[in-house]
Amino acid sequence: MKTFTLAIRETLAAEMRRDPAVFLMGEDIGAYGGAFGVTQGLLAEFGPGRVRDTPISEQALVGTAIGAAAAGLRPVVEIMFMDFITLAVDQLANLAAKLHYIYQIPCPLVVRAPTGGGRGYGATHSQTLERLFTGIPGLRIAAPSDAADASGLLQTAMRGANPVLFLEHKLLYPLRWKLGEKLPPPVPFGHARITHSGDRVTLIAWSYMAHLCLAAAHQLAAAGINAEVVDLRTLAPLDTETLVAAARKTGRVLIVEEGPVTGGFGAEIATRIFEAAYDSLDAPIRRLAGPDCPIPASKVLEAACIPSIAAIVAAARELAESTN
């Protein structure tokens, strides 16, 4: 059994052993091991030149990584909380995403970002902000929901030639999965995964919400409702084909997303399905997401902002049983 954290740490270490161009940058990733402990022990093995503690300068640390990538190194940046990536959006949107298109300079950069709520950290340490980047061509976005995908997608990200935003949900870090001694195989981008097969209703999610959808599917199955669960794995590129096929299969689609409903990536998914499969839909596409408010710190208020297994089950059930 390995945690999500260990799967990522082992993958970072394996890639660093394999390729001397790989190095890590981030705030408190050295002796401290990162705010969530992901890089624990790596400083001891690889030294301060390859496990670089940086000042609290998100813009400079991301920009420096972009420059190092442009010169042929393979930086992996840790943004301590994804909320702080707002400080580096310019560098990602205006530089990393455009280097190859405009200048034909490859930018093999990985930006790891712990995302999401559920730990009571409050409004500036709990957001899922992939929506800021899904509309910026030139960036890839990976959002694993289990340890094998975390490793497999990270391997692909670290061996590629493009900037990748790698989302690590904080609630996934301590969870355990069965994984062998060896690293799982790399997972190609743009291939969604059906984690549960069903014919009554299709649940679509990514990152921690895909994990919750799988749990919800087990509960639904016990109640006699078979749900098809699609884990996107990557938001960019987006595997529209698998989404549409899964929507056609059940005719009923529930998209589950952690952030506020307005402007969320769920809207893009819904539109793609509607454009390609409206004639197969037996009910309006439904979105289960957060309300349009910042994430509060209080446990009860925070819980009101994030879809739960119970909420997913209830929404899926309602959708499966609706007559349209």
Partner: peptide, 15 residues
Amino acid sequence: GSMAFACGLALEAQQ
């Protein structure tokens, strides 16, 4: 916009 980028180029040269 190129200041940190230049730091990165320099970091590669240093490493």
